[in-house]
Design a protein around this nucleic acid. Structure first.
Length: 364
DNA sequence: TATGCGTGGTT
DNA sequence: TAACCAAGCAT
């Protein structure tokens, strides 16, 4: 394509769309006024949303569905009703309440961001996209989303929905993720003169309910007459995506140490990286090959039993296959260095990721 | 620009 | 059932 050889012409629309009338922001806003979804973090029509609500929901919604986020959002808001309360929380508690939601760096950054808002901005979120972008865990999308939705600033929060809608409108032949810059540039050309927050949410609602990844409901789309992909007959083809790498499998052994009173031996993972700061039962490293000498990594000497069960779990970039060994030890057994005993009643307060919830099914 | 980083629902 | 997908960010 000509544009690929000439990056300076980034915002130009591909020729496939050139013969259609341009999409009108007013048409989308009119559709939004009739079909807007009611979501817990949204303000009533015509009102501006609380920046903290927007912030909290946007962080939780990163790569996560609305249905999954719902209960977590309600719990966080009840527990920490404003940014000052969240800033005053302990990280361990934030992680324990985030447990199960995944991408745990978000929880660490959420907490760090709340503290930054208090320390740098006196407890009020900045309104400028650039200042928002400087906050921990706030990237280009989230900065634009807060600016537009909470402050009605002119901004284009280009998420997966926007990318899909824009790629189809222009029948963009470039593949993701390479196409991201061009999609953002094209998205900016769609912005209205006002109602930036409504427009942002309208694009997301359109992508979530009409311009869906599979079987888009083009007949109901306010922009069907402006859409090059629809005109071409294969809207589902867009956005084009680069091939993904295969997902390897790693092996490991998890050690369940159960004290006579029911307490279980637990440790915390390193603060960063996979499941950073989360709680786990001791285990071998998770590697391509199963450990040669299983009990060499056991946290303590005991009468170990290999369980006739395995735990499988899929992470974003590898699948994990865990063997399980269990030992029952006397009530007086001291916890090895770096470990702690957690009674059954203490599980709720622990930051166990989903894979550990699966493992802990086998303590009995 | 590519990779690391979770989870659960859908097809 | 394996693949795909969901309001991305940090490095």
């Amino acid at each position: 394509m000509a544009d690929a050889a000439n990056p300076a012409r980034l915002p130009s629309a591909p020729s496939a769309a050139s013969r259609l009338p341009p999409p009108s922001p007013a048409a989308l806003l009119a559709w939004y006024d009739r079909h807007r979804r009611r979501l817990p973090w949204r303000a009533a029509p015509g009102e501006r949303a609380d920046p903290y609500h927007v912030f909290l929901s946007e962080i939780m919604l990163q790569q996560t569905t609305v249905v999954t986020v719902g209960p977590y959002y309600a719990d966080f808001l009840a527990r920490w009703p404003d940014v000052g309360a969240l800033a005053g929380a302990r990280l361990e508690e934030v992680l324990s309440r985030w447990a199960g939601l995944g991408y745990y760096a978000r929880a660490r950054n959420l907490h760090a961001c709340a503290r930054a808002v208090v320390e740098r901005h006196g407890g009020r979120f900045p309104q400028e996209e650039a200042a928002l972008l400087a906050l921990p865990g706030v990237g280009p999308y989230t900065a634009a989303a807060i600016a537009a939705i909470a402050f009605d600033r002119r901004a284009a929060p280009v998420d997966g929905n926007w990318e899909r809608v824009v790629a189809r409108l222009f029948a963009l032949e470039e593949t993701l993720p390479k196409a991201k810059a061009r999609l953002k540039a094209l998205a900016l050309t769609l912005l209205p003169q006002a109602r930036f927050g409504d427009f942002a949410q309208a694009m997301m609602d359109l992508g979530a309910t009409i311009c869906t990844p599979r079987k888009p409901a083009c007949a109901l789309c306010p922009w069907r007459k402006n859409c090059a992909a629809h005109a071409g007959g294969t809207p589902e083809r867009y956005p084009l995506k680069a091939a993904k790498a295969a997902r390897p499998t790693r092996q490991g052994i998890a050690f369940l140490v159960v004290r006579a009173d029911g307490a279980v031996l637990v440790r915390s993972r390193p603060a960063k990286g996979l499941l950073g700061g989360m709680s786990e039962v001791p285990s071998t490293p998770w590697e391509t090959q199963a450990p040669a000498d299983p009990l060499a990594h056991a946290p303590l000497a005991a009468q170990w039993t290999a369980l006739n069960a395995r735990v499988s779990h899929v992470f974003s970039h590898f699948a994990l296959d865990l063997a399980l060994w269990r030992a029952r030890v006397p009530a007086a057994t001291p916890a090895p260095a770096g470990h702690r005993w957690v009674p059954r009643a203490g599980f709720e307060a622990e930051a166990f990721p989903s894979v550990m919830v699966k493992v802990l099914q086998y303590i009995d």
